[in-house]
Amino acid sequence: MRTATASLKLARSSCVDGQDMPELFLIRRITNGCYLSSNTAQCRAPKRSSARRALDEESLAVLCKALAHPARVKLLNYLADYGTCYFGKLTDILPLAPSTISQHVTVLKEAGLILGSDENTRTCYCVNAERLDELKELIAAL
C-alpha cells in the first residue's frame, strides 16, 4: 500500500500597500506530485461537453514531439506565414548549420506538419494545412 507524505510550508503574501504579511498556508504534498491547498478553485477540472471528440493520444504526442524544439516551431511558423520556400531560404532564418536545419525539417516532415516537393535539384517546402488543423483539433480536445 502506498503512503502519502505531507509537508507544511510558510508562504509570504504581499499586502496592497507593498508590505509583506506572513500567512500560513497548509499545502499537503502527496508523493504522486499533486498539491492541495485552501484555494482549490484554481485546481478544478474544466467543464467538458459530452459531445467532445475522442482524443488520439498517440497522434497528439507525435505532433507535440515534433514541435518540442524552438527551431522547429520557428520553421513551421515561417512556412505558415510565407507559404512555400526552398531549403536555402530556411537556412537564412535560423542561425544554425544547414545540416542541423535539415534534421529539424526531417522531423517536421516525418510528423506530417510540412510537405516537400522536389523541383529539379531543389526541394520546395510548405505547411501541411490538414495536419496542422488536426493538431489544433487534438489540442482543443484536451
Rank of each mutant, 00 (worst) to 15 (best):
L96N: 06
E58S: 11
R12W: 07
L10F: 00
E134Y: 03
Q42L: 09
C15N: 08
T121W: 10
S14Q: 09
L76Y: 05
C124L: 13
L55G: 00
I101H: 02
E130V: 14
T106F: 09
P95Q: 15
A66I: 15
C43G: 04
K65M: 08
L76E: 09
C43L: 11
L96Q: 08
D92L: 15
K136C: 12
A71I: 13
L96W: 10
R28V: 11
G33C: 08
L60N: 00
V16E: 03
L76N: 05
D118R: 12
C64T: 14
L108Q: 01
T84Y: 08
V62H: 10
P70D: 15
R2P: 00
T31H: 09
T100F: 03
S59Q: 13
L94C: 14
S99Q: 02
Y86Q: 13
R52W: 00
L138H: 00
Y35P: 00
L135G: 01
E130K: 13
T31C: 01
C34R: 10
G18C: 07
S38W: 06
R29L: 11
H69N: 06
L94K: 07
T31Y: 00
S117W: 07
S49R: 15
K9A: 07
S99D: 14
A41P: 00
R12Q: 02
L75W: 06
S37C: 12
A51N: 10
R28M: 04
L67S: 06
I30M: 01
D17C: 10
A140R: 00
C85P: 03
S38D: 11
G18W: 04
A45E: 11
L8E: 05
R53V: 15
H104S: 08
L135P: 00
K89I: 15
R53A: 14
I139S: 02
G116P: 08
T31M: 07
A111D: 06
R2Y: 01
K47A: 03
K74L: 10
A111K: 06
R53S: 13
L63R: 01
L132N: 02
R72A: 02
A54H: 05
E57A: 14
Y86D: 11
T123H: 09
E23N: 01
N32R: 08
V105M: 10
A61M: 07
R12S: 03
K9L: 04
L55S: 01
G18S: 03
T40G: 09
D20R: 04
T40D: 07
T91V: 14
H69M: 10
A45L: 10
P95L: 12
A80D: 08
V16W: 02
P95G: 11
V73K: 12
D56E: 13
R48F: 04
L132Q: 13
A4F: 02
A141D: 03
S14N: 03
E134M: 12
E130R: 13
E110F: 03
D92Y: 10
V105C: 10
L138Q: 02
G83I: 12
T40Q: 07
R2F: 01
S49A: 09
T123V: 15
F87I: 14
